[in-house]
Design a protein around this nucleic acid. Structure first.
Lengths: 341, 341
DNA sequence: GCCGCCTATGTTATCGTTAACAAGATTTCA
DNA sequence: TGAAATCTTGTTAACGATAACATAGGCGGC
């Protein structure tokens, strides 16, 4: 019909016809059937964002960046939550292929590349976010986890800590291993021998953070500082510390990878390595949209964004080594001033 | 093709053919095109959940209930976030109609019924969640906001409070007005005159909670307790109280509608009116799925679920009226014991 | 006046699936 | 044995849009 032309092009249509068609549309409450359009045009104007934990504000922020960039160019976004499970991830990808999405932004549950192979088989472009994948030939956007961890642990060491325990996520996830690598580099830098290393691998959630902290606390000599590899691990850690009556930062310092929103765990304000989560999402979407528009080079591109240490009140010199401050002063009300490094 | 029969029915197909088809599917990596299927069958096996704030754990929990119920019957769920804006709501509904969703679960941004009219015009079934809508002929699932508010405010009054301020959401939202009504009933019950009433309407978010609290604190005589009509308002309130140096519950009690997850605002644990959020979502989805299956009566149904007062440590007798406890004892570490009423 | 080009509209075929019908093969049962 | 019932497979049309082509005027240039 000419109707199609009015709705889409509006080139090659006379003003009267356009008027007539629009009137009819208004009268009938007509709305085009997107399904039919997509079937015919072989493009759904939809991209998918597959991530591991939508409840984590870090990923929520990424999702916003993706959505904003996509919407600005008329694309819709489908969100899929894999719960850190590769099986779920593959399940979702199959659904997405069937639903004919134009491309997939993926936070992979593991560093295996079977998911990417599946996408490649079906000719779907992909962008990997936040994590590295072994031997992948795709666009990637992430931050330098190793360097961020180095900053955080260096900060703890500068405060005087010598026994720092790192609570990591799964060993199969690159952000875990990279952050542990950064931790090791910081120890080496300070000539702290590997015998003082304390690394616990677990999962990127509250329960695991709680459990790892309980384990860390029974170690002798007890660590004086915790480096949590993500924000949920830190929340679990705080709960475990409270239960065992330890006060942060007097009895235990804690530094965290990934920021937490205001309103979460107000007390104490956390020293964190903040990632530009919104930008990770936005730029990943941009890479994808460029590729879909045909404006992208054939070779994969990698964007590594900077991260930033924000020191707040959850880190302080350890009890024994405290020299300047006379004792463990725990202000009832934490000041909200921040210093950025 | 016979292929279709193998994939769907598998009735009326010989085992050999089925085998042959399945082999071919595996070899070719064939996946059916969902779009075409949906176009032909006029059903997308998709329902939409349109809500006002996906960042609020109350709605996140509803979303889980919806998703679980839907998935169990093979339905997919599309989530849409209206940000409490009726314009956005209508925008989304138009998209959903175009995308041919089978039905819509709606947390309406206002109590107007234009959205429901739009859906009815296009023959789409709807279920209204959490809030009431004026003169609507649709299925509804919610809790008894007025009764919940009555419980919370009665609890404050029993503790000895006489000046309770209620921080509400928008006046155009039924949960706001219902909770204010419950507040008034509690005051009447206790023979507290309307001159002691203090009602502030705002929005269901942190910023508004903060701002309303600042306003409430300058009132003279100052209120001794706050009743926050939702959890985000409460978080904003807590921030404002901290800034002005007030300690909860010694200087100010606070009771909240909607529970908060562990990990959020640990200190102090909140006295809340908890709603069965998951059940609201699940039962709403069930109503919809029943209707889609043709098993529902023509007349609209309304489900009102019970809510529950959970007293924790954010409420205590007011300073002046304190008689039994000698002073305002604020334990450094809040116990996590809960008593249910 | 004729040709070619541009514009506005109509026609046909197609995307990939399934509903509906058709028809041959096989089984059931009187 | 024959007719009806059942099973298996094939054929056609349709879902609602658009791409591609076709047609018919209108216009300007020579």
């Amino acid at each position: 019909m000419t109707v199609s032309r009015v709705i889409n092009d509006s080139r090659h249509t006379s003003p009267e016809t356009r008027e007539r068609v629009n009137r009819a549309i208004a009268e009938l409450g007509y709305m085009p059937n997107v399904l039919a359009r997509q079937l015919r045009s072989k493009t759904t104007k939809t991209i998918a964002l597959v991530l591991t934990d939508i409840a984590n504000p870090f990923f929520t922020t990424i999702a916003r960046g993706v959505e904003d960039a996509a919407r600005a160019r008329g694309y819709a976004v489908m969100f899929c939550n894999t719960d850190e499970s590769e099986a779920e991830e593959l399940e979702y990808l199959r659904v997405l292929i069937q639903r004919q999405v134009d491309g997939v932004l993926l936070v992979p549950a593991t560093d295996s590349s079977v998911s990417l192979k599946l996408l490649a088989e079906h000719g779907l472009p992909a962008v990997v976010l936040d994590r590295r994948v072994r031997s992948a030939e795709v666009d990637e956007v992430r931050t330098d986890s190793e360097f961020g961890a180095l900053l955080a642990v260096r900060h703890l060491i500068e405060l005087g800590h010598r026994r720092v325990v790192v609570l990591a996520g799964p060993e199969t996830v690159s952000t875990s291993t990279d952050r542990v690598a950064g931790y090791r580099r910081a120890l080496e830098e300070a000539d702290i021998g590997p015998e003082s290393e304390q690394v616990i691998f677990g999962e990127y959630n509250e329960a695991s953070g709680y459990e790892m902290t309980r384990r860390a606390l029974v170690a002798r000599p007890q660590p004086t500082a915790i480096f949590a590899c993500n924000n949920f691990i830190a929340i679990g850690a705080i709960q475990a510390l409270r239960e065992s009556g330890m006060v942060v930062p007097a009895d235990m310092s804690i530094a965290v990878f990934d920021d937490l929103p205001q309103g979460w765990v107000l007390d104490p304000f956390m020293t964190v390595v903040a990632q530009p989560a919104y930008e990770i999402g936005r730029q990943a979407a941009e890479l994808m949209l460029e590729r879909l528009a045909g404006h992208a080079p054939a070779d994969p591109r990698t964007i590594v964004l900077p991260c930033q240490l924000i020191t707040r009140r959850s880190t302080a010199p350890p009890r024994r080594e405290a020299t300047i401050e006379p004792a463990i002063k725990v202000p009832a009300q934490w000041a909200q001033t921040e210093s950025h490094a």
